[in-house]
Design a protein around this nucleic acid. Structure first.
Lengths: 218, 218
DNA sequence: CCAGCAACATACCGACCAGTATGTACTCTG
DNA sequence: CAGAGTACATACTGGTCGGTATGTTGCTGG
């Protein structure tokens, strides 16, 4: 009786579950924004997809902008962490170059994803110039991304498996540019083949970052 | 008297000059679309910038979409030709790699351009998934771009100045991806320094495409 | 010089859309 | 179990925007 019903069983279907409502809004909004862009995303479409009314939306979020900010911070940022940062940190047994190759190859190549492009790029293209609030939030994600890759490269340099002549941060930015650039090309072509070609070329380039194999530390 | 007044002197200021009106509309539209995206570009803002009324607009263009198509085909495509195709074709005296490096370094690095990003990417990100008419027009530009670079690389391979182990079309696509990718990064950062770093890294990579210098044909 | 079409100009319309005002029902606390 | 505040629901508004209907003027050929 003292504990919140939330932590107990679900016998009563809970007509009110604010956190769940918030999540439904975030998910619906991220899908709509992913597809049409932030400015062209309609609140009514989001509400219909989330099966939620306008009153609920404006209870949880101050404005459309606030909703967009939350999408970036909670949905887009999480996606990036799960696809890049976590795998890179968890594969300390592998050589960093191999880990990077694995991560690149693990980027979803389903038609849906290829045709939609990268959420980060979509939002950056649309909003970075127009809204400083959006820009800053996106920049944080880019920075964490670059730093994650750079850290892996530095580790490889210490190991002796990555060329010492390259600057980790700059090489990381180049990798990101390649990935994003190919996502743009694939999105324009609306064709998975273009993306697969991109992966091949990127992986080939990544291989060229290995230190010449004089001798490696086990 | 028989010749059109157009080809003669300008003593009468010509209140009606349909071709000039059309061009004013195209320029104003391309600026507005470049800044806000196609969907968010307002016709009224375009009309105000062009100092033209709605009646004139809809006399020259069937719809907003038609205006957008014209912007792509006449403004964006021309930009791409002038920056890439023409320079590459005109520098047959130089080695292709040097020509490519020169072209990359000649991409405008003014704050305005960096903050606005690449028109091609902007439009692709926004429209390729939503409108097949836009997509096809953009794809033609990308294809011509890639083909222009690939042709230069092939020429270098025949010369013996470009590595024979790389596939011209794929290498061209990788170069495009790098350029576009860095334009995205620089646009997000809203910082010219990021773009300059990109150029350095791209130029460094381009240098790695040279054939190992055994012996070159003059 | 005038008729007729080309090249505009102006006013207006209906749709859409973010945001709000206000009402209501669920749920937790005491 | 009552009352209060949380978590919604509904109806409406003001503004914007693409598009159109219709009027007007400059230009050109005859």
């Amino acid at each position: 009786m003292l504990l919140a019903r939330k932590t107990l069983s679900r016998r009563a279907p809970r007509l009110r579950d604010p956190e769940r409502t918030r999540q439904r809004l975030l998910q619906a909004a991220s899908r709509e924004v992913y597809r049409y862009g932030f400015q062209s995303a309609g609140l009514d479409a989001i509400l219909a997809a989330a099966n939620v009314t306008k009153g609920a939306l404006y209870y949880h979020f101050e404005s459309k902008e606030a909703l967009g900010h939350a999408v970036i911070e909670e949905v887009v940022a999480k996606l990036q962490r799960d696809r890049w940062l976590v795998p890179l940190q968890q594969s300390k047994d592998k050589e960093p170059i191999d880990a990077l190759i694995a991560v690149v190859q693990a980027i979803p190549a389903r038609p849906k994803d290829v045709k939609g492009g990268c959420p980060l790029v979509n939002l950056t293209q649309e909003m970075s110039q127009l809204d400083e609030q959006f820009r800053k939030r996106l920049e944080r994600i880019f920075h964490a991304w670059q730093e994650g890759i750079a850290a892996a490269l530095r580790r490889g340099q210490h190991q002796g498996t990555v060329r010492r002549d390259l600057v980790p941060e700059e090489t990381a930015s180049l990798l990101i540019a390649m990935v994003e650039g190919y996502e743009v090309l694939a999105k324009n072509a609306q064709d998975v083949k273009v993306w697969n070609m991109g992966i091949r070329n990127i992986v080939g380039w990544l291989s060229s970052l290995r230190a010449p194999s004089k001798r490696r530390r086990g």
